[in-house]
């Protein structure tokens, strides 16, 4: 077995927030390495810095100090537009609050990242968006508006959007936070399937049982990583779904 490639490499990462006179040290020197094909859960108590970490990994925010190398590219040297290009080509981000464009069909929402990729023409854009929606099991909801979709369906649209540009890593911030158990399992089984197909996934959650679907857990507390462990008895979300008691129709 040849050694998998390193996708994310972070060292000495710090992030401070200044609120008035107070400085919040949200991240206090993080070192983390994520290899291709991993499914990493970032865990920890509320306020421990999980989202801050993920936003920096997603190039949505800039670290105060430290190194971040994504797929061989060092972030520190890049300008705004280059970062945008990176988000467009290499990253897929799933927000806890879905962040779909209102009054816009599921299909157009999924097309959005490709819209900013000049290499992808209109026809290909649509084909890829349709394929991504099929992958998340929403081929029958393509022309629905977000407000015509359930929370789980909206989250699946958001996942389809993060997939459509074929990123090297998908970053999901509490993607199951707003969903009930069944829907959470559906999302997790979707992510597990994507992971089995080779996608690297970083997944923020504070639910330990959700974290058991992943391959590795990284636990944050107060801006530090306090524990890292491989998941030993990994659960299969698809099987769990089958075993859930059937709700009455």
């Amino acid at each position: 077995m040849n050694k998998p490639k390193t996708i994310i490499e972070v060292s000495g990462l710090k992030k401070d927030f200044h609120v008035g006179e107070i400085t919040v040290h949200a991240l206090k020197g993080i070192n983390l390495e994520i290899k291709q094909g991993e499914f990493v859960a970032i865990m920890g108590t509320s306020g421990s810095g999980k989202s801050t970490m993920l936003n920096i990994l997603g190039c949505l925010d800039k670290p105060t100090a430290g190194q971040y190398v994504l797929d061989g590219v060092s972030m520190g040297e890049l300008g705004k537009n280059q970062l945008a290009g990176l988000r467009n080509n290499k990253l897929g981000f799933v927000f806890q609050s879905y962040n779909l464009l209102p009054r816009t069909t599921a299909l157009e929402n999924v097309e959005l990242p490709l819209f900013y990729n000049s290499k992808v023409k209109a026809k290909e854009r649509k084909e890829r968006a349709i394929a991504a929606l099929e992958a998340v099991g929403l081929s029958d909801r393509m022309y629905h508006m977000p407000n015509q979709l359930s929370g789980g369906q909206q989250q699946r649209v958001a996942i389809a959007r993060s997939l459509v540009n074929d990123p090297v890593v998908i970053l999901a911030d509490e993607a199951t936070g707003n969903l009930d158990t069944r829907t959470s399992y559906e999302i997790m089984s979707l992510l597990q399937r994507l992971n089995e197909d080779g996608k690297t996934i970083v997944f923020v959650t504070h639910e330990p049982d959700i974290a058991r679907f992943t391959t590795r857990n990284v636990v944050f507390r107060d801006g530090h990583i306090i524990r890292e462990e491989m998941v030993k008895d990994r659960l299969n979300a698809a099987e769990m779904l089958k075993n859930l008691p059937v709700e009455e129709d």
């Binding site: 945008a84 988000r87 467009n88 464009l101 959005l112 900013y116 540009n165």
Partner: peptide
């Protein structure tokens, strides 16, 4: 507000400021 959120989203999926 709505537009700023929309712009935030567009930026986060890789839209450049100028675009």
């Amino acid at each position: 507000t709505e537009r700023t959120k929309e712009i935030g989203l567009r930026l986060s999926v890789g839209g450049r400021g100028v675009d």
